[in-house]
Simulated scan of single mutants.
Amino acid sequence: MSQNERVQEELEALEAILMDDISIIYNDQGCAELVKSTIFPSTANEVEKQYVCVTLEVQLPENYPDCKPLIKLKSPRGLDDSTVDHLYREIDKKCEEYIGQAVIYELIELIRENLTESNLPTCQCAVCLYGFSEGDCFTKTQCFHYFHNYCLAKHLIVTEKHYHEEQEKLPAWKRSTEGFQATCPVCREPISCDVHDLRSSLPPKELENAQKFELTHELKLLQENMQKLFSYQKSKGGIIDIEAEENKLLLITNSSDDPSDENSDDPGPSIPTNITEGSLENGLLKNQRCFNRFTNNR
């Protein structure tokens, strides 16, 4: 049997077994060059309990299966880097073992077994940045991102509040008629969830057991350094333009009326002539207040 016949036989068997769960891409000569499949853990018919997934891409060299295929794992969901690295190592071993034989189905089953064994998100909640512990209530979004129920509820409540506040600032003709749409905090895809149910969940265990924030000596030193930076910015003209503040733009100017500054080694910006004392104070003081609120209320 020729090499092309062996490959074609393998691909036909894959399509018969996996049907719509596999995609085969052919080149201009009609030869298969890429096989793709998104793999989920085995959970019988309980699709809602599939908490992790990954897309396997198998690139077929001309002399496959007499050499190893090129493997890529794309769009891992619920898997941290160490888990993905482990999968790559296991895949490489399997490819070495099956040189000269059809290996794609073996790779799919290998990945499925690993996902089934670790069918609990090993990533972090993107809201609180803590992981998922046994007993935590968490949500898998339609885009396969993961959040503690408690954290996602808080995020959506605050997001909706800000949305309505921003809408109130607009003239009536500019306001949205569609209403608030919850989106994923990671990828911004629209999501559907019941905030009332989410907010009834307990906080994640790691968050409850986390050490309370304390203003350490190192942070006090950082505050002192920020105060010095604030004074330096004030003396040299650093400013957030009050008129451009709504657009979150930083105004940087290098204009100077003092010719003696031309040869100065000081790299700091000089005070622009078109900035008032009041606007300078307001912009710099706002920066300092933001920093103080972060360190004191963390």
Rank of each mutant, 00 (worst) to 15 (best):
Q3A: 11
R6T: 12
L14M: 14
E15M: 07
E15H: 03
E15V: 03
I17G: 03
I17R: 15
D20R: 13
I25H: 11
I25L: 12
N27C: 11
G30R: 10
K36H: 04
I39G: 02
F40T: 05
P41M: 13
S42F: 15
T43R: 03
N45L: 09
Q50N: 08
V52G: 00
C53E: 06
L56H: 01
L56P: 01
P61D: 14
D66K: 13
K68Q: 14
I71K: 04
L73N: 05
L73D: 04
P76V: 02
R77Y: 06
G78E: 01
G78H: 01
L79T: 01
D80H: 12
S82Q: 11
S82W: 06
H86D: 08
R89L: 06
R89Q: 11
C95R: 05
A102V: 03
I111A: 01
R112D: 01
T116M: 10
E117M: 09
N119K: 07
N119V: 07
L120Q: 08
C125T: 09
V127F: 09
C128W: 09
Y130D: 13
S133V: 12
T141S: 04
H145M: 02
Y146P: 00
H148N: 10
A153S: 13
K154C: 10
V158M: 10
Y163D: 07
K169T: 07
L170E: 07
W173P: 02
G179Y: 12
A182C: 08
C184E: 02
P185S: 07
V186A: 04
S192K: 14
S192F: 10
D197F: 09
D197Y: 08
L198Q: 07
P203H: 03
P203W: 01
K205C: 08
N209V: 08
N209A: 14
Q211M: 13
T216V: 09
T216A: 12
H217F: 15
L221E: 14
L229K: 05
L229A: 05
F230H: 10
K234Y: 13
K234F: 12
S235I: 05
K236H: 09
G237L: 00
D241S: 15
I242D: 05
N247V: 08
N247C: 07
L250E: 08
I252H: 12
S256W: 03
D257Q: 07
S260N: 11
S270F: 07
P272A: 14
T273M: 13
T273S: 14
N274D: 15
I275G: 01
G278Y: 15
L280V: 01
N282L: 13
L285K: 00
L285T: 00
K286I: 02
N287W: 00
Q288W: 00
N292A: 08
F294D: 04
N296F: 13
N296S: 12
R298S: 14
